[in-house]
Amino acid sequence: MNLEKVIFGFFIILACTLNFGFFIGDLERAELHHPMELFFAVVVNLIATVLKFGDRTQLGATHLATSLVASLQLLAASIVWVWQLYVVGQPMSGELTAVVVSLSGGALLANLFSVVLLIGETLRQGR
Protein backbone atom coordinates (compact mmCIF):
# COMPACT_ATOMS: atom_id res chain seq x y z
CA MET A 1 0.00 0.00 0.00
CA ASN A 2 1.26 3.41 -0.93
CA LEU A 3 0.37 6.25 1.48
CA GLU A 4 0.55 8.86 -1.28
CA LYS A 5 -2.08 6.98 -3.26
CA VAL A 6 -4.39 6.77 -0.24
CA ILE A 7 -4.21 10.48 0.49
CA PHE A 8 -4.42 11.42 -3.15
CA GLY A 9 -7.46 9.25 -3.82
CA PHE A 10 -9.11 10.39 -0.58
CA PHE A 11 -8.98 14.07 -1.48
CA ILE A 12 -10.06 13.59 -5.06
CA ILE A 13 -13.08 11.54 -4.12
CA LEU A 14 -13.98 13.79 -1.15
CA ALA A 15 -13.83 16.83 -3.42
CA CYS A 16 -16.24 15.12 -5.78
CA THR A 17 -18.67 13.94 -3.08
CA LEU A 18 -18.83 17.31 -1.27
CA ASN A 19 -19.41 18.99 -4.60
CA PHE A 20 -22.21 16.57 -5.34
CA GLY A 21 -23.76 17.13 -1.91
CA PHE A 22 -23.90 20.86 -2.48
CA PHE A 23 -25.19 20.55 -6.02
CA ILE A 24 -28.09 18.21 -5.34
CA GLY A 25 -31.48 19.80 -4.61
CA ASP A 26 -33.88 22.18 -6.35
CA LEU A 27 -31.91 24.68 -8.43
CA GLU A 28 -33.65 27.86 -7.19
CA ARG A 29 -34.21 27.15 -3.53
CA ALA A 30 -31.41 28.62 -1.46
CA GLU A 31 -32.40 26.72 1.68
CA LEU A 32 -31.54 23.38 -0.02
CA HIS A 33 -27.89 24.39 -0.64
CA HIS A 34 -25.94 24.94 2.55
CA PRO A 35 -23.14 27.52 2.37
CA MET A 36 -20.90 25.45 4.67
CA GLU A 37 -20.95 22.58 2.19
CA LEU A 38 -19.83 24.95 -0.57
CA PHE A 39 -17.09 26.24 1.70
CA PHE A 40 -15.74 22.75 2.39
CA ALA A 41 -16.03 21.81 -1.26
CA VAL A 42 -13.82 24.81 -2.13
CA VAL A 43 -11.27 23.94 0.55
CA VAL A 44 -11.01 20.25 -0.38
CA ASN A 45 -10.80 21.11 -4.07
CA LEU A 46 -7.93 23.50 -3.41
CA ILE A 47 -6.09 20.83 -1.41
CA ALA A 48 -6.63 18.29 -4.19
CA THR A 49 -5.23 20.81 -6.68
CA VAL A 50 -2.11 21.36 -4.59
CA LEU A 51 -1.55 17.61 -4.23
CA LYS A 52 -1.44 17.36 -8.01
CA PHE A 53 1.31 19.98 -8.35
CA GLY A 54 4.66 18.73 -9.57
CA ASP A 55 3.58 15.51 -11.29
CA ARG A 56 5.51 15.49 -14.56
CA THR A 57 3.55 12.76 -16.35
CA GLN A 58 0.99 13.45 -19.05
CA LEU A 59 -1.77 12.03 -16.90
CA GLY A 60 -0.65 14.23 -13.99
CA ALA A 61 -1.04 17.30 -16.18
CA THR A 62 -4.60 16.32 -17.12
CA HIS A 63 -5.38 15.64 -13.46
CA LEU A 64 -4.16 19.11 -12.55
CA ALA A 65 -6.20 20.71 -15.32
CA THR A 66 -9.45 19.10 -14.15
CA SER A 67 -8.80 20.22 -10.57
CA LEU A 68 -8.04 23.76 -11.66
CA VAL A 69 -11.32 23.89 -13.58
CA ALA A 70 -13.28 22.59 -10.59
CA SER A 71 -11.66 25.05 -8.18
CA LEU A 72 -12.26 27.95 -10.53
CA GLN A 73 -15.96 27.11 -10.91
CA LEU A 74 -16.46 26.69 -7.16
CA LEU A 75 -14.64 29.94 -6.39
CA ALA A 76 -16.81 31.76 -8.91
CA ALA A 77 -19.90 30.30 -7.23
CA SER A 78 -18.78 31.49 -3.77
CA ILE A 79 -17.96 34.96 -5.08
CA VAL A 80 -21.48 35.33 -6.51
CA TRP A 81 -22.95 34.30 -3.16
CA VAL A 82 -20.73 36.63 -1.10
CA TRP A 83 -21.37 39.55 -3.48
CA GLN A 84 -25.14 39.26 -3.16
CA LEU A 85 -25.17 38.95 0.64
CA TYR A 86 -22.49 41.46 1.63
CA VAL A 87 -21.92 43.86 -1.26
CA VAL A 88 -25.46 44.19 -2.55
CA GLY A 89 -26.84 43.44 0.90
CA GLN A 90 -29.90 41.46 -0.22
CA PRO A 91 -30.94 37.88 0.65
CA MET A 92 -30.33 35.22 -2.06
CA SER A 93 -32.91 35.37 -4.82
CA GLY A 94 -34.04 32.32 -6.75
CA GLU A 95 -32.19 33.41 -9.90
CA LEU A 96 -28.85 33.93 -8.16
CA THR A 97 -29.16 30.62 -6.33
CA ALA A 98 -29.58 28.97 -9.72
CA VAL A 99 -26.38 30.67 -10.94
CA VAL A 100 -24.40 29.48 -7.89
CA VAL A 101 -25.70 25.92 -8.09
CA SER A 102 -25.17 25.57 -11.82
CA LEU A 103 -21.57 26.80 -11.42
CA SER A 104 -21.05 24.11 -8.81
CA GLY A 105 -22.65 21.66 -11.28
CA GLY A 106 -19.87 22.47 -13.76
CA ALA A 107 -17.30 21.88 -11.05
CA LEU A 108 -18.95 18.54 -10.31
CA LEU A 109 -18.41 17.49 -13.92
CA ALA A 110 -14.71 18.38 -13.71
CA ASN A 111 -14.43 16.46 -10.43
CA LEU A 112 -16.06 13.44 -12.06
CA PHE A 113 -13.43 13.56 -14.83
CA SER A 114 -10.79 13.61 -12.12
CA VAL A 115 -12.23 10.48 -10.55
CA VAL A 116 -12.40 8.76 -13.94
CA LEU A 117 -8.72 9.56 -14.52
CA LEU A 118 -7.84 8.18 -11.08
CA ILE A 119 -9.70 4.92 -11.73
CA GLY A 120 -8.30 4.63 -15.26
CA GLU A 121 -4.73 5.06 -14.10
CA THR A 122 -5.14 2.55 -11.31
CA LEU A 123 -6.64 -0.05 -13.65
CA ARG A 124 -3.97 0.46 -16.31
CA GLN A 125 -1.04 0.14 -13.93
CA GLY A 126 -2.52 -3.03 -12.57
CA ARG A 127 -0.57 -2.94 -9.32
Binding site: N2, E4, I7, F8, V50, L51, K52, F53, G54, D55, R56, T57, G60, Q125, R127
Partner: peptide
Protein backbone atom coordinates in the same frame (compact mmCIF):
# COMPACT_ATOMS: atom_id res chain seq x y z
CA UNK B 1 7.61 5.33 -12.38
CA UNK B 2 7.43 1.82 -13.78
CA UNK B 3 11.24 1.64 -13.98
CA UNK B 4 11.51 2.80 -10.38
CA UNK B 5 8.84 0.35 -9.27
CA UNK B 6 10.58 -2.60 -10.93
CA UNK B 7 14.09 -1.64 -9.83
CA UNK B 8 13.38 -0.67 -6.23
CA UNK B 9 9.97 -2.16 -5.47
CA UNK B 10 8.54 1.21 -4.44
CA UNK B 11 7.17 4.08 -6.44
CA UNK B 12 8.69 7.54 -6.08
CA UNK B 13 6.32 10.25 -4.84
CA UNK B 14 4.82 12.13 -7.76
CA UNK B 15 3.69 15.49 -6.37
CA UNK B 16 5.82 18.28 -4.81
CA UNK B 17 4.26 17.88 -1.39
CA UNK B 18 5.01 14.18 -1.03
CA UNK B 19 8.51 14.59 -2.46
Amino acid sequence: DTIAWVCSGSEPPRGFLFR
